[in-house]
């Protein structure tokens, strides 16, 4: 009996931690899709880049893990702005298919580039000692790394909700997501709002990639491997809703963790079936507007 409860608590803890990580990585994509109707399949590239920045700084520069995180965020944000300005901006008006293909092309290029710079093998990565310890509360033990993911996820989630709901810039973002044309008519510089939002979203993906190296692994095929996860989060949540993205991330994190814990032989089968069923039930996502 104890072991069953222990297992449930373990799955809940790990699942929520994983879900938070997914949320941090994919919330930017959800906003991008909602605001510009732009299907950026290459979103995972930003997460991968963040991971590599952190790994490189730690191994080549000997920097402490926590210090590398803001740098991963900032660097990825800067790179994403360049990409948005020079490439993405040209296809906002294009058909969905063109956007898909362009971003798939960018995925391919970044996979090859990452393999060239960092080598095709998975990055071996060791967390600092204080994150590999297990703590006990009663008869339940948890990793400090999982606690760190949870803490980061919670803080970032609160910051996003505060920023969106309570600040002037957040109101501008919501206006642009709701109706781009009316927002333009109100004198909101939607392009500028979008660039900044895109930078923040991509930066968060980079931060998530850096935070999650230990949980997700890091090798050049990262953007393809986790593409399905991002797509599931965005489509189940519904594009443009932060709440939806959060709910979908937690659902995905929990069901994936529970699946791996209780029925490991089915692999990723469960989450794919769940995704298909949700898509059939509500094509616009659980929280999406039609």
């Amino acid at each position: 009996m104890f072991s069953i409860i222990q297992g449930i608590v373990q799955v809940l803890f790990d699942g929520v931690a994983f879900g938070m990580l997914l949320f941090v990585m994919s919330v930017g994509l959800s906003i991008t899709l909602g605001m510009m109707r732009f299907a950026n399949l290459a979103h995972g590239v930003f997460a991968m880049l963040g991971g590599y920045v952190t790994a490189t700084l730690m191994y080549r520069g000997g920097w402490p893990f926590l210090v590398t995180l803001p740098i991963a965020f900032g660097l990825v944000a800067v790179v994403s702005v360049a990409l948005e300005r020079f490439v993405y901006r040209r296809v906002y008006a294009a058909k969905e298919l063109d956007q898909v293909l362009l971003t798939v092309g960018i995925i391919y290029m970044s996979i090859a580039a990452a393999a060239y710079v960092w080598g095709p093998e998975p990055m071996t990565f060791t967390l600092p000692d204080y994150l590999t310890v297990y703590r006990r509360i009663g008869w339940f033990s948890f990793s400090t790394y999982g606690a760190l993911l949870l803490a980061f996820g919670t803080v970032i989630t609160l910051a996003i909700f505060y920023g969106l709901e309570r600040t002037r810039f957040g109101a501008m973002i919501r206006a642009a997501v709701d109706d781009r044309r009316v927002a333009l008519g109100m004198g909101i510089n939607v392009n500028r709002v979008f660039t900044i939002t895109f930078a923040i979203g991509s930066g968060l993906a980079g931060l998530g990639g850096a935070l999650g190296i230990n949980a997700l692994g890091l090798d050049p095929s990262f953007p393809i491997e986790y593409l399905v996860f991002f797509l599931i989060v965005v489509s189940i949540g519904g594009g443009g809703t932060v709440k939806g993205a959060l709910a979908a991330s937690l659902l995905l994190g929990l069901s994936d963790t529970a699946g791996k814990y209780y029925v490991p032989q089915t692999g990723a089968f469960i989450i794919y079936v769940v995704m298909l069923l949700v898509m059939l039930w509500r094509p616009n996502g659980l929280f999406g507007r039609s």
Binding site: V104, I107, A113
Partner: peptide, 11 residues
């Protein structure tokens, strides 16, 4: 690295 060129071709 041939995937780089396939990607470039797509873009």
């Amino acid at each position: 690295y041939w995937y780089f060129w396939i990607g470039l071709m797509l873009v």
